[in-house]
Amino acid sequence: MLKQLKPRQQALLWLLSGLLVLSLLFSLQIGSVAISWRELLLALTGQAVSEPLTQTIIWQIRLPRLLVAMLVGAGLAVAGAVLQNVSRNPLADPYLFGLMAGAGLGATIVSIVLPDQLISMALAAFLGALLAVLLVFIACMGNRLQKMEVTLLAGVAVSFMLSAISSFILYFAEPFAANRVIFWMMGSLSRTDWHSVALIAPAVMVLLVVALAVRRQLDALLLSDDSARSLGVNTQRLRLVLLLLTALVTACIVAQCGGIAFVGLMVPHMVRYFMGVTAVPLLLGSALFGAIFMMWVDNAARSLLAMQEIPLGVITSVLGSVFFLIILRRQLQQGG
């Protein structure tokens, strides 16, 4: 697959891979406890460290968290790229089915209505996200997902409906619980551990592999549905499978990390700008760039304020929107 790429695209992918490894090493050093490079390397290679706490902090706190950050970034970016290409709509976004609102509702119900610790917040958020997807699919059943605009609009409607219910519940909630739910919805990786890695990794991998497997079909869809169909692509089935997969991946991510806006919308656009529209470079580039981007966003979230975390969604939105506007601006200027 890689051999088909242009030298420039290959070079960019290698560059991103290198940056990913460097970012990971660098990020492992960032945190409220200072750890020297020597200790870090010793701990990573499993050798005895003078301070057993270092081992715990690196292996139990920082590494799983960074891996989740990478998976979340890659997952959201790939989901966004797939959805944008499948729908030929540049505004398609992994949260398009009202997933975030559904997950928010699940989290709200579990932390406010249900008795303490009946089911975990992550599971509830996951179920809520699935509920949103189900509602959208039911609403769109008639046109069999042929008209993506209808799907997008149904997503918006479901989104509003579910967040209205959440708001209603939050209104009666005790303020601390309400604040926590709202903070959770802004996105955070502070709760992530190896279980989160085990939950998200398979979903993201499956999406990436499936999307790469149907790379030719995805490219054929870039022209038009009719044109793809005349090449033997079952556009309906392809869409359904990919929509469900992206929804599943996003639901896993939202359940573990709350709402992380803008990554799925923006990263694919930036990658497209540098690497072109076809599936292979776009998907690989999005996965790598999304992972790097998310790691640095989390680093910022962890270290901008001493001893406190800034919600991830806030940072992704700020960084994302600015970067996005710059690229738009440059594109406009180039276009004439």
Binding site: D219, L223, S230, V277
Partner: peptide, 22 residues
């Protein structure tokens, strides 16, 4: 098909290579 609009961002070679798909 009758031509509607041109595909955005694809190279001629890539469009022709789509014929390999089936």
């Amino acid at each position: 098909a009758q031509i509607s609009s041109a595909p955005q961002g694809l190279f001629c070679e890539q469009v022709a290579a789509m014929g390999l798909l089936p």
